[in-house]
Computed example of a mutant assay.
Amino acid sequence: MMRGWRAIALTAVLAALAGGAGTWISASWVLARREPPSLHDIVHHDLKLSPDQLARIEAVEARFAARRPALEADVRAANLELATAIEQSDGDSPQVQAAVDHFHVAMGALQKETITHVFEMRSVLTPEQAAIFDDRIVVALAPNEN
């Protein structure tokens, strides 16, 4: 009888993961098709930067560009760790939960560094430019809310 519950639990976990993966893939496809303006486009095309501002922004972008690949690699590694834990588990095991936690930490680190990068760029702007920047960022993050 216990084996039957394990099979049901494993099926439920796999179904939830498959549903989540399908949702993520669909959302990624839809978002890629809509293509809100990138942060680079907002800063370099929507704002009239002075030469000094441009140099400072480029330094901020270079620092983030150097850090971002490691953060994204950790997200990919955590995703692989989760896939391996699911493959080797017969249910919602401690290994699966540890992999989920690692994935959340990796994604959180990437998001926090990205937000820090956004505010570092914003600190270079004049109040008028910052207002435009904020409006564009809000629309990019929540396009249907405005």
Rank of each mutant, 00 (worst) to 15 (best):
98 A>N: 09
13 V>C: 10
104 H>D: 12
48 K>I: 03
80 L>S: 11
92 D>S: 06
77 A>D: 12
59 A>C: 00
34 R>H: 14
82 L>G: 07
53 Q>G: 04
50 S>M: 02
25 I>T: 06
141 L>W: 07
8 I>N: 02
136 R>L: 02
73 A>G: 09
1 M>W: 07
130 A>N: 06
16 A>W: 10
94 P>L: 10
85 A>I: 04
8 I>Y: 05
44 H>I: 02
16 A>R: 05
101 D>K: 14
96 V>K: 05
45 H>V: 08
122 R>T: 02
64 F>A: 05
124 V>H: 05
54 L>K: 14
136 R>Q: 15
128 E>V: 05
100 V>Y: 06
116 T>K: 11
122 R>H: 08
21 A>H: 06
133 F>N: 05
20 G>I: 04
83 A>G: 15
39 L>K: 05
89 S>E: 03
130 A>G: 02
126 T>C: 07
34 R>M: 10
36 P>E: 02
97 Q>C: 00
120 E>N: 13
24 W>S: 05
104 H>C: 03
28 S>I: 00
7 A>I: 10
80 L>N: 09
76 R>Y: 00
84 T>A: 11
56 R>I: 07
26 S>W: 15
29 W>S: 08
49 L>P: 05
118 V>Y: 05
81 E>C: 01
52 D>F: 04
95 Q>V: 03
115 I>L: 15
92 D>Y: 11
23 T>Y: 15
132 I>V: 15
119 F>G: 01
50 S>C: 04
73 A>Y: 02
18 A>C: 06
144 N>C: 01
103 F>E: 11
119 F>M: 13
141 L>G: 12
51 P>Y: 01
10 L>P: 00
91 G>R: 04
111 Q>Y: 04
69 P>S: 06
67 R>H: 03
72 E>D: 15
87 E>N: 09
46 D>K: 11
135 D>M: 09
17 L>V: 09
133 F>Q: 02
25 I>C: 01
19 G>L: 13
110 L>A: 13
98 A>Q: 14
55 A>M: 06
101 D>A: 15
97 Q>E: 14
43 V>Q: 01
20 G>W: 13
